[in-house]
Design a protein around this nucleic acid. Structure first.
Lengths: 257, 257
DNA sequence: TAAATGTTGTTATCATAATAACAACAAGTG
DNA sequence: CACTTGTTGTTATTATGATAACAACATTTA
Protein backbone atom coordinates (compact mmCIF):
# COMPACT_ATOMS: atom_id res chain seq x y z
CA UNK A 1 0.00 0.00 0.00
CA UNK A 2 2.57 2.48 -1.10
CA UNK A 3 2.00 5.75 -2.78
CA UNK A 4 4.43 6.46 -5.55
CA UNK A 5 7.35 7.90 -3.61
CA UNK A 6 8.45 11.06 -5.39
CA UNK A 7 11.71 10.28 -7.20
CA UNK A 8 14.65 12.66 -7.18
CA UNK A 9 14.48 15.53 -9.67
CA UNK A 10 17.46 14.08 -11.46
CA UNK A 11 15.66 10.80 -11.80
CA UNK A 12 12.71 12.45 -13.52
CA UNK A 13 14.91 14.16 -16.10
CA UNK A 14 16.72 10.91 -16.63
CA UNK A 15 13.49 9.03 -17.13
CA UNK A 16 12.58 11.56 -19.80
CA UNK A 17 15.80 10.87 -21.66
CA UNK A 18 15.21 7.17 -21.43
CA UNK A 19 11.72 7.57 -22.79
CA UNK A 20 13.06 8.79 -26.08
CA UNK A 21 15.07 5.61 -26.23
CA UNK A 22 11.83 3.66 -26.11
CA UNK A 23 11.43 2.94 -22.42
CA UNK A 24 8.28 3.72 -20.46
CA UNK A 25 8.38 5.63 -17.21
CA UNK A 26 8.22 2.44 -15.17
CA UNK A 27 10.85 0.71 -17.23
CA UNK A 28 13.14 3.65 -16.68
CA UNK A 29 12.49 3.82 -12.95
CA UNK A 30 12.96 0.11 -12.45
CA UNK A 31 16.19 0.05 -14.40
CA UNK A 32 17.52 3.01 -12.44
CA UNK A 33 16.57 1.35 -9.18
CA UNK A 34 18.30 -1.81 -10.26
CA UNK A 35 21.50 0.09 -10.91
CA UNK A 36 21.39 1.34 -7.36
CA UNK A 37 20.88 -2.13 -5.98
CA UNK A 38 22.05 -4.91 -8.22
CA UNK A 39 20.73 -8.36 -7.52
CA UNK A 40 17.63 -6.92 -5.95
CA UNK A 41 14.39 -8.81 -5.53
CA UNK A 42 11.15 -7.53 -6.94
CA UNK A 43 10.15 -6.16 -3.58
CA UNK A 44 13.43 -4.31 -3.13
CA UNK A 45 13.07 -2.80 -6.57
CA UNK A 46 9.57 -1.75 -5.68
CA UNK A 47 10.77 -0.05 -2.53
CA UNK A 48 13.59 1.80 -4.23
CA UNK A 49 11.82 2.83 -7.39
CA UNK A 50 8.40 3.55 -5.96
CA UNK A 51 6.85 1.49 -8.73
CA UNK A 52 3.93 -0.60 -7.41
CA UNK A 53 5.10 -4.07 -6.57
CA UNK A 54 2.61 -5.75 -8.84
CA UNK A 55 3.78 -3.60 -11.74
CA UNK A 56 7.39 -4.48 -11.16
CA UNK A 57 7.03 -7.98 -12.54
CA UNK A 58 5.71 -7.21 -16.02
CA UNK A 59 8.12 -4.30 -16.26
CA UNK A 60 11.07 -6.52 -15.44
CA UNK A 61 9.80 -8.99 -18.00
CA UNK A 62 9.85 -6.30 -20.67
CA UNK A 63 13.29 -5.12 -19.59
CA UNK A 64 14.48 -8.68 -19.83
CA UNK A 65 13.14 -8.86 -23.39
CA UNK A 66 14.95 -5.65 -24.18
CA UNK A 67 18.07 -7.23 -22.76
CA UNK A 68 18.54 -4.69 -20.03
CA UNK A 69 18.34 -7.12 -17.12
CA UNK A 70 19.11 -10.73 -16.38
CA UNK A 71 17.21 -12.91 -13.97
CA UNK A 72 18.37 -15.39 -11.38
CA UNK A 73 16.79 -18.80 -11.05
CA UNK A 74 16.50 -18.55 -7.31
CA UNK A 75 13.41 -18.06 -5.27
CA UNK A 76 12.75 -15.30 -4.79
CA UNK A 77 14.06 -14.22 -8.15
CA UNK A 78 16.77 -11.64 -8.24
CA UNK A 79 17.51 -9.24 -11.05
CA UNK A 80 20.69 -7.77 -12.40
CA UNK A 81 21.04 -4.76 -14.68
CA UNK A 82 23.03 -4.71 -17.85
CA UNK A 83 25.80 -2.16 -17.44
CA UNK A 84 24.66 1.34 -18.49
CA UNK A 85 27.12 1.65 -21.34
CA UNK A 86 26.00 -1.56 -22.93
CA UNK A 87 22.35 -0.94 -22.16
CA UNK A 88 22.24 2.49 -23.77
CA UNK A 89 24.31 1.26 -26.65
CA UNK A 90 21.90 -1.55 -27.23
CA UNK A 91 18.84 0.68 -27.16
CA UNK A 92 20.45 3.32 -29.28
CA UNK A 93 21.65 0.91 -31.91
CA UNK A 94 18.13 -0.41 -32.24
CA UNK A 95 16.89 3.12 -32.89
CA UNK A 96 19.73 3.74 -35.30
CA UNK A 97 18.82 0.60 -37.12
CA UNK A 98 15.25 1.81 -37.51
CA UNK A 99 16.52 5.21 -38.59
CA UNK A 100 18.65 3.70 -41.31
CA UNK A 101 15.79 1.60 -42.60
CA UNK A 102 13.43 4.54 -42.55
CA UNK A 103 15.94 6.72 -44.32
CA UNK A 104 16.32 4.44 -47.30
CA UNK A 105 12.61 3.88 -47.62
CA UNK A 106 11.80 7.55 -47.32
CA UNK A 107 14.44 8.43 -49.85
CA UNK A 108 12.95 5.99 -52.31
CA UNK A 109 9.51 7.50 -51.83
CA UNK A 110 10.92 10.97 -52.13
CA UNK A 111 12.83 10.29 -55.32
CA UNK A 112 9.89 8.51 -56.92
CA UNK A 113 7.50 11.31 -56.17
CA UNK A 114 6.68 13.78 -58.88
CA UNK A 115 8.35 16.98 -57.82
CA UNK A 116 6.02 19.82 -58.61
CA UNK A 117 7.28 21.71 -61.64
CA UNK A 118 6.73 25.28 -60.56
CA UNK A 119 8.72 24.43 -57.50
CA UNK A 120 9.26 26.92 -54.74
CA UNK A 121 9.09 29.78 -57.13
CA UNK A 122 5.85 31.45 -56.26
CA UNK A 123 5.46 30.64 -52.60
CA UNK A 124 6.83 32.10 -49.43
CA UNK A 125 7.87 29.48 -46.93
CA UNK A 126 8.05 29.76 -43.18
CA UNK A 127 10.80 27.81 -41.53
CA UNK A 128 10.90 27.34 -37.79
CA UNK A 129 13.79 26.50 -35.51
CA UNK A 130 17.44 27.45 -35.56
CA UNK A 131 18.75 24.16 -36.86
CA UNK A 132 16.20 23.92 -39.59
CA UNK A 133 17.03 27.43 -40.71
CA UNK A 134 20.76 26.82 -40.55
CA UNK A 135 20.39 23.80 -42.79
CA UNK A 136 18.30 25.51 -45.43
CA UNK A 137 20.43 28.62 -45.34
CA UNK A 138 23.69 26.82 -45.92
CA UNK A 139 21.99 24.82 -48.63
CA UNK A 140 20.85 27.96 -50.38
CA UNK A 141 24.26 29.61 -50.17
CA UNK A 142 25.90 26.48 -51.47
CA UNK A 143 23.93 26.84 -54.68
CA UNK A 144 25.09 30.42 -55.28
CA UNK A 145 26.30 31.06 -58.80
CA UNK A 146 26.84 34.77 -59.28
CA UNK A 147 26.44 36.88 -56.18
CA UNK A 148 25.34 36.85 -52.57
CA UNK A 149 24.05 39.82 -50.62
CA UNK A 150 23.81 39.57 -46.89
CA UNK A 151 22.56 41.76 -44.11
CA UNK A 152 23.82 40.04 -41.05
CA UNK A 153 22.87 40.76 -37.47
CA UNK A 154 23.05 37.45 -35.73
CA UNK A 155 25.55 36.69 -33.01
CA UNK A 156 25.23 33.00 -33.52
CA UNK A 157 26.22 31.19 -36.68
CA UNK A 158 28.81 33.73 -37.81
CA UNK A 159 31.68 31.28 -37.97
CA UNK A 160 29.91 28.60 -39.87
CA UNK A 161 28.49 31.11 -42.30
CA UNK A 162 31.85 32.61 -43.20
CA UNK A 163 33.30 29.17 -43.64
CA UNK A 164 30.56 28.30 -46.07
CA UNK A 165 30.98 31.55 -47.97
CA UNK A 166 34.68 30.92 -48.41
CA UNK A 167 33.97 27.54 -49.91
CA UNK A 168 32.00 29.09 -52.76
CA UNK A 169 33.28 29.44 -56.29
CA UNK A 170 35.62 32.37 -56.80
CA UNK A 171 33.32 34.05 -59.33
CA UNK A 172 30.65 34.56 -56.73
CA UNK A 173 30.64 38.14 -55.52
CA UNK A 174 29.78 38.52 -51.87
CA UNK A 175 28.55 41.69 -50.18
CA UNK A 176 27.99 41.71 -46.46
CA UNK A 177 26.51 44.43 -44.29
CA UNK A 178 27.05 43.66 -40.63
CA UNK A 179 27.78 45.21 -37.27
CA UNK A 180 31.31 44.04 -36.83
CA UNK A 181 34.03 41.96 -38.40
CA UNK A 182 36.99 40.37 -36.71
CA UNK A 183 40.03 39.19 -38.62
CA UNK A 184 41.06 39.84 -42.19
CA UNK A 185 38.56 40.20 -44.99
CA UNK A 186 39.07 37.72 -47.83
CA UNK A 187 39.40 39.37 -51.20
CA UNK A 188 36.35 37.73 -52.57
CA UNK A 189 34.16 39.24 -49.84
CA UNK A 190 33.13 42.85 -49.57
CA UNK A 191 32.28 43.84 -46.00
CA UNK A 192 30.51 46.97 -44.93
CA UNK A 193 30.45 47.48 -41.17
CA UNK A 194 27.40 49.42 -40.10
CA UNK A 195 25.43 49.77 -36.89
CA UNK A 196 21.80 48.89 -37.40
CA UNK A 197 19.38 51.85 -37.76
CA UNK A 198 17.85 53.33 -34.66
CA UNK A 199 14.42 52.04 -35.51
CA UNK A 200 15.68 48.53 -35.08
CA UNK A 201 18.20 49.18 -32.35
CA UNK A 202 15.78 50.75 -29.92
CA UNK A 203 13.43 47.86 -29.87
CA UNK A 204 13.61 47.26 -26.13
CA UNK A 205 10.73 44.84 -25.73
CA UNK A 206 11.74 41.96 -27.87
CA UNK A 207 15.26 40.83 -27.22
CA UNK A 208 16.33 40.67 -30.84
CA UNK A 209 19.14 38.39 -31.57
CA UNK A 210 18.75 37.92 -35.27
CA UNK A 211 17.64 40.05 -38.16
CA UNK A 212 19.21 38.85 -41.34
CA UNK A 213 18.60 38.98 -45.05
CA UNK A 214 20.26 36.71 -47.57
CA UNK A 215 19.81 37.26 -51.30
CA UNK A 216 21.35 34.78 -53.71
CA UNK A 217 21.78 35.45 -57.42
CA UNK A 218 18.95 38.00 -57.24
CA UNK A 219 16.62 35.03 -57.44
CA UNK A 220 16.25 33.59 -53.97
CA UNK A 221 15.95 35.31 -50.64
CA UNK A 222 15.83 34.21 -47.06
CA UNK A 223 15.01 36.38 -44.09
CA UNK A 224 15.81 35.33 -40.55
CA UNK A 225 14.26 36.90 -37.50
CA UNK A 226 13.61 36.06 -33.90
CA UNK A 227 15.25 35.78 -30.54
CA UNK A 228 16.68 33.02 -28.47
CA UNK A 229 13.71 33.28 -26.13
CA UNK A 230 10.95 33.04 -28.65
CA UNK A 231 12.75 30.96 -31.22
CA UNK A 232 13.82 31.83 -34.71
CA UNK A 233 11.69 32.01 -37.79
CA UNK A 234 12.81 32.38 -41.37
CA UNK A 235 11.02 33.22 -44.57
CA UNK A 236 12.29 31.78 -47.80
CA UNK A 237 11.10 32.47 -51.29
CA UNK A 238 12.05 32.53 -54.92
CA UNK A 239 9.14 34.73 -55.82
CA UNK A 240 10.08 37.83 -57.80
CA UNK A 241 8.17 40.19 -55.55
CA UNK A 242 9.72 38.81 -52.42
CA UNK A 243 13.24 39.06 -53.76
CA UNK A 244 12.63 42.55 -55.11
CA UNK A 245 11.29 43.72 -51.77
CA UNK A 246 14.31 42.56 -49.84
CA UNK A 247 16.69 43.81 -52.46
CA UNK A 248 15.17 47.22 -51.84
CA UNK A 249 15.62 46.62 -48.16
CA UNK A 250 19.24 45.75 -48.78
CA UNK A 251 19.79 48.91 -50.80
CA UNK A 252 18.19 50.92 -48.05
CA UNK A 253 20.67 49.52 -45.56
CA UNK A 254 23.54 50.00 -47.94
CA UNK A 255 22.87 53.69 -48.43
CA UNK A 256 21.67 54.56 -44.98
CA UNK A 257 23.58 56.99 -42.72
CA UNK B 1 -15.96 11.82 -44.40
CA UNK B 2 -13.25 9.38 -45.19
CA UNK B 3 -12.51 6.19 -43.48
CA UNK B 4 -8.84 5.67 -42.86
CA UNK B 5 -7.76 4.30 -46.24
CA UNK B 6 -5.53 1.34 -45.49
CA UNK B 7 -1.99 2.46 -46.28
CA UNK B 8 0.43 0.28 -48.20
CA UNK B 9 2.09 -2.50 -46.21
CA UNK B 10 5.40 -0.78 -46.72
CA UNK B 11 4.00 2.40 -45.26
CA UNK B 12 2.91 0.64 -42.11
CA UNK B 13 6.35 -0.83 -41.51
CA UNK B 14 7.88 2.52 -42.21
CA UNK B 15 5.57 4.23 -39.76
CA UNK B 16 6.73 1.73 -37.14
CA UNK B 17 10.34 2.67 -37.72
CA UNK B 18 9.51 6.33 -37.47
CA UNK B 19 7.70 5.74 -34.21
CA UNK B 20 10.91 4.74 -32.52
CA UNK B 21 12.32 8.06 -33.65
CA UNK B 22 9.63 9.77 -31.64
CA UNK B 23 6.93 10.32 -34.24
CA UNK B 24 3.32 9.28 -33.78
CA UNK B 25 1.50 7.25 -36.38
CA UNK B 26 -0.16 10.34 -37.82
CA UNK B 27 3.03 12.33 -37.88
CA UNK B 28 4.68 9.54 -39.80
CA UNK B 29 1.81 9.16 -42.26
CA UNK B 30 1.58 12.87 -42.90
CA UNK B 31 5.30 13.22 -43.46
CA UNK B 32 5.31 10.29 -45.84
CA UNK B 33 2.38 11.77 -47.73
CA UNK B 34 4.19 15.08 -48.00
CA UNK B 35 7.18 13.38 -49.54
CA UNK B 36 4.91 11.99 -52.21
CA UNK B 37 3.39 15.38 -52.90
CA UNK B 38 5.49 18.32 -51.87
CA UNK B 39 3.75 21.63 -51.51
CA UNK B 40 0.49 19.94 -50.78
CA UNK B 41 -2.41 21.57 -49.00
CA UNK B 42 -3.89 20.12 -45.85
CA UNK B 43 -6.70 18.54 -47.82
CA UNK B 44 -4.33 16.92 -50.30
CA UNK B 45 -2.30 15.54 -47.45
CA UNK B 46 -5.46 14.21 -45.90
CA UNK B 47 -6.40 12.45 -49.12
CA UNK B 48 -3.01 10.88 -49.65
CA UNK B 49 -2.28 9.89 -46.10
CA UNK B 50 -5.76 8.85 -45.02
CA UNK B 51 -5.37 10.88 -41.86
CA UNK B 52 -8.62 12.68 -40.96
CA UNK B 53 -8.54 16.18 -42.33
CA UNK B 54 -9.16 17.79 -38.98
CA UNK B 55 -6.21 15.92 -37.52
CA UNK B 56 -3.88 17.00 -40.26
CA UNK B 57 -3.56 20.55 -38.97
CA UNK B 58 -2.28 19.86 -35.45
CA UNK B 59 -0.05 17.13 -36.82
CA UNK B 60 1.52 19.49 -39.31
CA UNK B 61 1.97 21.98 -36.51
CA UNK B 62 3.92 19.42 -34.50
CA UNK B 63 5.97 18.40 -37.52
CA UNK B 64 6.77 22.04 -38.06
CA UNK B 65 7.97 22.29 -34.46
CA UNK B 66 10.11 19.24 -35.03
CA UNK B 67 11.50 20.95 -38.10
CA UNK B 68 10.32 18.32 -40.52
CA UNK B 69 8.14 20.61 -42.63
CA UNK B 70 7.99 24.22 -43.63
CA UNK B 71 4.83 26.17 -44.25
CA UNK B 72 3.88 28.61 -46.96
CA UNK B 73 2.22 31.90 -46.18
CA UNK B 74 -0.41 31.47 -48.85
CA UNK B 75 -4.04 30.74 -48.40
CA UNK B 76 -4.65 27.91 -48.36
CA UNK B 77 -1.41 27.04 -46.67
CA UNK B 78 0.92 24.66 -48.40
CA UNK B 79 3.46 22.43 -46.76
CA UNK B 80 6.88 21.22 -47.74
CA UNK B 81 8.85 18.34 -46.24
CA UNK B 82 12.40 18.56 -45.05
CA UNK B 83 14.46 16.17 -47.15
CA UNK B 84 14.50 12.65 -45.67
CA UNK B 85 18.23 12.61 -45.03
CA UNK B 86 18.14 15.79 -43.04
CA UNK B 87 14.89 14.91 -41.32
CA UNK B 88 16.07 11.54 -40.07
CA UNK B 89 19.41 12.98 -39.13
CA UNK B 90 17.72 15.65 -37.10
CA UNK B 91 15.47 13.22 -35.25
CA UNK B 92 18.25 10.76 -34.68
CA UNK B 93 20.67 13.30 -33.33
CA UNK B 94 18.08 14.37 -30.82
CA UNK B 95 17.79 10.79 -29.60
CA UNK B 96 21.53 10.40 -29.56
CA UNK B 97 21.79 13.51 -27.47
CA UNK B 98 19.38 12.07 -24.95
CA UNK B 99 21.24 8.80 -25.02
CA UNK B 100 24.52 10.49 -24.21
CA UNK B 101 23.00 12.40 -21.34
CA UNK B 102 21.33 9.30 -19.97
CA UNK B 103 24.53 7.34 -20.26
CA UNK B 104 26.57 9.68 -18.10
CA UNK B 105 23.86 9.98 -15.49
CA UNK B 106 23.29 6.25 -15.34
CA UNK B 107 26.98 5.61 -15.08
CA UNK B 108 27.24 7.95 -12.15
CA UNK B 109 24.38 6.20 -10.41
CA UNK B 110 25.90 2.85 -11.18
CA UNK B 111 29.35 3.71 -9.91
CA UNK B 112 27.99 5.26 -6.74
CA UNK B 113 25.86 2.27 -5.91
CA UNK B 114 27.12 -0.21 -3.39
CA UNK B 115 27.97 -3.29 -5.38
CA UNK B 116 26.87 -6.30 -3.43
CA UNK B 117 29.87 -8.07 -1.93
CA UNK B 118 29.02 -11.69 -2.53
CA UNK B 119 28.51 -10.72 -6.12
CA UNK B 120 27.40 -13.21 -8.67
CA UNK B 121 28.99 -16.05 -6.85
CA UNK B 122 26.07 -17.96 -5.51
CA UNK B 123 23.39 -17.23 -8.03
CA UNK B 124 22.49 -18.61 -11.42
CA UNK B 125 21.50 -15.95 -13.92
CA UNK B 126 19.25 -16.26 -16.92
CA UNK B 127 20.18 -14.13 -19.87
CA UNK B 128 17.82 -13.70 -22.79
CA UNK B 129 18.51 -12.67 -26.34
CA UNK B 130 21.39 -13.33 -28.68
CA UNK B 131 23.03 -9.93 -28.37
CA UNK B 132 22.80 -9.86 -24.64
CA UNK B 133 24.37 -13.29 -24.44
CA UNK B 134 27.08 -12.40 -26.91
CA UNK B 135 28.04 -9.39 -24.85
CA UNK B 136 28.25 -11.22 -21.57
CA UNK B 137 30.03 -14.16 -23.11
CA UNK B 138 32.77 -12.09 -24.67
CA UNK B 139 33.09 -10.19 -21.44
CA UNK B 140 33.55 -13.40 -19.48
CA UNK B 141 36.13 -14.76 -21.89
CA UNK B 142 38.01 -11.50 -21.82
CA UNK B 143 38.58 -11.96 -18.11
CA UNK B 144 40.09 -15.43 -18.51
CA UNK B 145 43.33 -15.93 -16.64
CA UNK B 146 44.32 -19.59 -16.75
CA UNK B 147 42.17 -21.72 -18.95
CA UNK B 148 39.00 -21.88 -21.00
CA UNK B 149 36.98 -24.94 -21.78
CA UNK B 150 34.37 -24.80 -24.46
CA UNK B 151 31.77 -27.10 -25.88
CA UNK B 152 30.66 -25.34 -28.97
CA UNK B 153 27.68 -26.20 -31.14
CA UNK B 154 26.48 -22.90 -32.46
CA UNK B 155 26.59 -21.98 -36.12
CA UNK B 156 26.40 -18.34 -35.39
CA UNK B 157 29.08 -16.42 -33.54
CA UNK B 158 31.95 -18.70 -34.43
CA UNK B 159 34.10 -16.02 -36.04
CA UNK B 160 33.77 -13.46 -33.34
CA UNK B 161 34.42 -16.05 -30.69
CA UNK B 162 37.65 -17.28 -32.20
CA UNK B 163 38.82 -13.73 -32.64
CA UNK B 164 38.22 -13.03 -29.01
CA UNK B 165 39.98 -16.21 -27.96
CA UNK B 166 43.04 -15.29 -29.97
CA UNK B 167 43.24 -11.95 -28.22
CA UNK B 168 43.67 -13.61 -24.84
CA UNK B 169 46.95 -13.80 -22.98
CA UNK B 170 49.27 -16.55 -24.18
CA UNK B 171 49.24 -18.38 -20.85
CA UNK B 172 45.57 -19.12 -21.14
CA UNK B 173 45.04 -22.71 -22.18
CA UNK B 174 42.06 -23.19 -24.45
CA UNK B 175 40.25 -26.47 -25.08
CA UNK B 176 37.42 -26.62 -27.55
CA UNK B 177 35.10 -29.44 -28.38
CA UNK B 178 33.11 -28.72 -31.47
CA UNK B 179 31.60 -30.28 -34.59
CA UNK B 180 33.91 -28.79 -37.15
CA UNK B 181 36.85 -26.50 -37.60
CA UNK B 182 37.93 -24.73 -40.73
CA UNK B 183 41.38 -23.30 -41.17
CA UNK B 184 44.52 -23.81 -39.15
CA UNK B 185 44.44 -24.29 -35.42
CA UNK B 186 46.50 -21.74 -33.48
CA UNK B 187 49.04 -23.28 -31.15
CA UNK B 188 47.45 -21.91 -28.09
CA UNK B 189 44.15 -23.62 -28.84
CA UNK B 190 43.43 -27.30 -28.53
CA UNK B 191 40.57 -28.38 -30.76
CA UNK B 192 38.74 -31.68 -30.55
CA UNK B 193 36.30 -32.23 -33.39
CA UNK B 194 33.43 -34.42 -32.34
CA UNK B 195 29.88 -34.98 -33.51
CA UNK B 196 27.38 -34.41 -30.76
CA UNK B 197 26.02 -37.54 -29.05
CA UNK B 198 22.94 -39.21 -30.42
CA UNK B 199 20.82 -38.18 -27.51
CA UNK B 200 21.20 -34.57 -28.53
CA UNK B 201 21.35 -35.08 -32.26
CA UNK B 202 18.06 -36.90 -32.56
CA UNK B 203 16.02 -34.16 -30.97
CA UNK B 204 13.72 -33.66 -33.92
CA UNK B 205 11.09 -31.46 -32.32
CA UNK B 206 13.03 -28.43 -31.29
CA UNK B 207 15.21 -27.08 -34.05
CA UNK B 208 18.34 -26.72 -31.96
CA UNK B 209 20.82 -24.27 -33.16
CA UNK B 210 22.87 -23.71 -30.10
CA UNK B 211 24.06 -25.88 -27.23
CA UNK B 212 27.23 -24.51 -25.76
CA UNK B 213 29.17 -24.64 -22.54
CA UNK B 214 31.90 -22.21 -21.57
CA UNK B 215 33.99 -22.72 -18.46
CA UNK B 216 36.55 -20.12 -17.48
CA UNK B 217 39.30 -20.68 -14.94
CA UNK B 218 37.20 -23.44 -13.38
CA UNK B 219 35.33 -20.67 -11.62
CA UNK B 220 32.71 -19.32 -13.97
CA UNK B 221 30.46 -21.07 -16.43
CA UNK B 222 28.01 -20.05 -19.04
CA UNK B 223 25.61 -22.32 -20.90
CA UNK B 224 23.88 -21.26 -24.07
CA UNK B 225 20.83 -22.98 -25.46
CA UNK B 226 17.96 -22.26 -27.76
CA UNK B 227 17.02 -21.93 -31.37
CA UNK B 228 16.59 -19.11 -33.77
CA UNK B 229 12.83 -19.64 -33.65
CA UNK B 230 12.35 -19.53 -29.93
CA UNK B 231 15.24 -17.26 -29.09
CA UNK B 232 18.37 -18.02 -27.15
CA UNK B 233 18.74 -18.31 -23.42
CA UNK B 234 21.92 -18.54 -21.42
CA UNK B 235 22.67 -19.46 -17.86
CA UNK B 236 25.62 -17.91 -16.12
CA UNK B 237 26.98 -18.62 -12.70
CA UNK B 238 30.05 -18.56 -10.52
CA UNK B 239 28.54 -20.96 -8.05
CA UNK B 240 30.74 -23.94 -7.25
CA UNK B 241 28.02 -26.47 -7.85
CA UNK B 242 27.10 -25.04 -11.20
CA UNK B 243 30.68 -25.00 -12.42
CA UNK B 244 31.30 -28.50 -11.13
CA UNK B 245 28.23 -29.83 -12.87
CA UNK B 246 29.21 -28.46 -16.25
CA UNK B 247 32.81 -29.48 -15.81
CA UNK B 248 31.50 -33.01 -15.44
CA UNK B 249 29.43 -32.45 -18.54
CA UNK B 250 32.53 -31.27 -20.33
CA UNK B 251 34.47 -34.33 -19.25
CA UNK B 252 31.65 -36.53 -20.44
CA UNK B 253 31.82 -34.97 -23.87
CA UNK B 254 35.58 -35.19 -23.90
CA UNK B 255 35.64 -38.92 -23.24
CA UNK B 256 32.58 -39.94 -25.14
CA UNK B 257 32.74 -42.21 -28.14
C1' DT C 1 1.83 -30.09 14.77
C1' DA C 2 -1.55 -26.45 13.92
C1' DA C 3 -2.53 -21.80 13.48
C1' DA C 4 -0.95 -17.31 12.48
C1' DT C 5 1.88 -14.47 9.83
C1' DG C 6 4.43 -12.84 6.06
C1' DT C 7 6.37 -13.06 1.32
C1' DT C 8 6.25 -13.98 -3.58
C1' DG C 9 4.44 -14.10 -7.88
C1' DT C 10 0.12 -13.93 -10.62
C1' DT C 11 -4.16 -12.18 -12.12
C1' DA C 12 -7.97 -9.11 -12.52
C1' DT C 13 -9.66 -4.64 -12.34
C1' DC C 14 -9.75 0.25 -12.58
C1' DA C 15 -7.79 5.04 -13.71
C1' DT C 16 -5.43 8.16 -16.50
C1' DA C 17 -3.21 10.22 -20.35
C1' DA C 18 -2.01 10.15 -25.17
C1' DT C 19 -3.46 9.35 -29.46
C1' DA C 20 -6.82 8.57 -33.01
C1' DA C 21 -11.25 9.51 -35.22
C1' DC C 22 -15.28 12.05 -36.00
C1' DA C 23 -18.77 15.87 -36.26
C1' DA C 24 -19.94 20.49 -36.40
C1' DC C 25 -19.11 25.19 -37.43
C1' DA C 26 -17.11 29.76 -38.52
C1' DA C 27 -14.32 32.18 -41.74
C1' DG C 28 -12.61 32.75 -46.10
C1' DT C 29 -12.77 32.26 -51.20
C1' DG C 30 -14.27 32.33 -55.92
C1' DC D 1 -24.25 31.34 -53.20
C1' DA D 2 -21.50 26.89 -53.14
C1' DC D 3 -17.41 25.32 -51.71
C1' DT D 4 -13.13 24.87 -49.26
C1' DT D 5 -10.32 25.88 -45.41
C1' DG D 6 -9.17 26.07 -40.88
C1' DT D 7 -10.74 25.59 -36.02
C1' DT D 8 -13.06 23.61 -32.16
C1' DG D 9 -15.07 20.24 -29.30
C1' DT D 10 -16.48 15.54 -28.41
C1' DT D 11 -16.02 10.71 -28.50
C1' DA D 12 -13.41 6.15 -29.18
C1' DT D 13 -9.40 3.52 -28.56
C1' DT D 14 -5.17 2.28 -26.91
C1' DA D 15 -1.09 2.06 -23.91
C1' DT D 16 0.40 2.87 -19.70
C1' DG D 17 -0.01 3.59 -14.91
C1' DA D 18 -2.02 2.12 -10.41
C1' DT D 19 -4.59 -0.75 -7.05
C1' DA D 20 -6.67 -4.79 -5.13
C1' DA D 21 -7.21 -9.60 -4.45
C1' DC D 22 -5.47 -14.19 -4.33
C1' DA D 23 -3.06 -18.73 -4.39
C1' DA D 24 1.28 -20.86 -3.20
C1' DC D 25 4.71 -21.21 -0.26
C1' DA D 26 7.85 -20.20 3.62
C1' DT D 27 8.42 -18.66 8.40
C1' DT D 28 7.15 -17.98 12.90
C1' DT D 29 4.80 -18.98 17.11
C1' DA D 30 1.89 -21.37 20.43
Amino acid sequence: MYLMAEPAAQTVALAESLKSLGLTKYEALVYIALLQASEATATEIHEISGVPRASVYPVLERLSQKQLVSVSNTSPRRFNPERPDDAIESLLSSVEHDAARAKTTLNRIYSQSVRRARGDQELIWSIHGGDHIRLRLLEMLQAADENVRIIFYWDHLKGELVERLLSLKKEVKIDIITDGWSGPVPGQINVLVKAPPMEIQKEPVTNWQAGCVFIVDKKKAMVVMGSKDEGFTALYSESVGFVRFFTMYWNFFLNWG
